[in-house]
Design a protein around this nucleic acid. Structure first.
Lengths: 329, 329
DNA sequence: CTGAAAGCGCTTACAG
DNA sequence: CTGAAAGCGCTTACAG
């Protein structure tokens, strides 16, 4: 290598100079650094990774960016990883059939760990990753019996808390704007809500409409639900982004009041939920804590340990889109 | 390599099997594939990149995620790159002093190209990248005299169009909620607005308050501006996220009407701007087109070509937060 | 502390 | 079409 020649030392010496903790005399290190500066030398990570078996790259799979909650997860992960000089390699597969191919490509890049948000993993790929000692962390989804870690908010707890709140606010007629039922989180939130409603009241039918996990979808779903007969006085939106659409439809299109005419609760606590125009009561998705646990899991010294499942308690963020117990309509 | 041994062929043969376009007999390819399947073989990108000098990785530097516009840029870039089987390696430096170190790390990963959103690059690093044939494209910022490409919306044009709109809406007293003046985009937008106001009217003082580029900052800045004497009837917000905060402050804290009491215009056209609660008139940041050009620039066959500067015309998105010419207050 | 040498897992002329 | 060999830019025992 040119630097070694210019400095008149061995190749090993320049390698040691750029490897913290190696034994080099200050004199030699100085000589090497000077030569490196002259040649604008930049170490080649690929070559070193080939030997050390570490790339300091973590692969992250995200389904999309339309829901702010994914940006939040990405942002927090990126910040925390940057602190320990690791980088995020981003993958956004178009559809579920791409999943295996995407995972395969992650492995080709020799990433140190794989983080999967809101998607699944085949047992075949899970085994492959496990066999290669690449830890896999699922965010917001549990894959029982697979050798992958899992970190998520307790959707059941969240659904229950949401239902209890609307019930205590005097809710009698309920609607749910739901999302893609292939996401376990959606199913769990909905099940918990329904179960809680059934136990407490004897409710025969709850209007459930798919909100497509978007603002626009939430808007349309709210229109449909609220125009039906037996108009709900309480509306669950399985994600905040749909709740924002629903609130806008309720207020600006249907000219109803929130929470007087209808209480609205969401899930996630995206930044917009706190905007004064919405002031949405919601069940927070614990992004900070999830990423905190993710960080621990990907840096486990013993990757072959049994997979861990971490469940984080739901936190209710009460704002003004719901009624409190003592001011029922 | 194990696969070669199991298949009873040379190492070169398995390499060829996994390199599209190589000359391998179907028979041999089949034998190799079978062995690979048995061993769950995954090609090592690092090793091949070491030779081919291509990693298919593009580095992206983002300042933060609090402004949705960066998520939009990231999302669009990720999608477009995924289509051609390239990946995004993410870097979010904490502060400007990290910039050089961050760029250095990008080069260590041997990325094929570097994309920098809303940050700067030192002439030293620009020269280094150029010397190594790594194209650099700046998003939303122009670095004259440096060997880097630049793609941005025409901030001057945007500022002018915004000013003309508020002027034609009958604006007499103006306020500006500005942002970090180290971002050229902010400076350019503001200059264009001021210049246009000065030329058209003879306006002595325009209230200018820093909105910190956040919702909360915009909220506070609006309070300050609107409570001052000679309350503006027209408010420019240099980014949409600040405009949302300003609108909430104006409506819910000050109980004023938009646009009757005060017209509000933003910049960027983030998704929230279209929400019915806001319906914010804004100058769009042409994310799609910017990324489109970025894609062209990073895949130029001749990276040593003179740097290109692409300026995209501003597009006014007129919604209901501004007054039109024929219904002045 | 330092250097020569082997080797990480591939690709690519070069012969055949 | 196929294989042997050199080499990409590093790290890491192993001697000294």
């Amino acid at each position: 290598m040119d630097v070694a020649r210019l400095a008149g030392v061995s190749i090993a010496a320049v390698s040691r100079t750029f490897t913290p903790g190696s034994s080099v005399s200050p004199k030699m290190a100085e000589r090497v650094r000077k030569a490196a500066r002259q040649l604008s030398y930049v170490p080649n990570n690929l070559a070193s990774s080939l030997i050390t078996q570490r790339t300091n790259i973590v692969a992250l799979m995200l389904p999309n960016f339309v829901n702010q909650i994914y940006s939040a997860l990405l942002s927090e992960a990126s910040l925390r990883l940057e602190e320990i000089d690791k980088q995020l390699l981003l993958f956004t597969p178009f559809n579920d059939s791409d999943l295996d191919r995407t995972l395969q490509r992650m492995l080709e890049y020799q990433v140190d760990a794989i983080v999967i948000a809101a998607a699944s993993i085949s047992s075949h790929m899970a085994a492959l990753c496990h066999g290669r000692d690449v830890p896999v962390v699922m965010l917001g989804r549990h894959m029982p019996n697979l050798p992958v870690h899992s970190v998520r908010g307790n959707a059941e707890d969240g659904g229950t808390k949401a239902a209890k709140l609307l019930l205590s606010g005097g809710g009698k007629r309920f609607g749910i704007i739901s999302g893609d039922q292939t996401y376990m989180t959606m199913v769990e939130r909905q099940q918990a809500i329904l179960q809680c409603l059934r136990v407490t009241n004897d409710i025969e039918n709850v209007a459930i409409v798919d909100g497509k996990l978007t603002y626009e979808g939430g808007y349309q779903a709210a229109l449909e639900i609220m125009r039906g007969e037996d108009r709900p006085d309480s509306l669950f939106c399985l994600t905040d982004i749909m709740a924002l659409g629903a609130m806008d439809a309720i207020r600006h299109n249907l000219n109803l009041r929130i929470p007087e005419d209808v209480a609205v609760i969401g899930f996630d606590d995206i930044p917009e939920a706190a905007h004064e125009s919405y002031n949405l009561t919601t069940v927070r998705t614990p992004v900070r804590q999830m990423i905190h646990h993710m960080m621990d899991l990907i840096s486990l010294e013993t990757p072959q340990d049994p997979p861990q499942t971490i469940l984080i308690d739901a936190e209710l963020i009460i704002r003004s889109s719901t009624r409190s117990a003592h001011n029922n309509p």
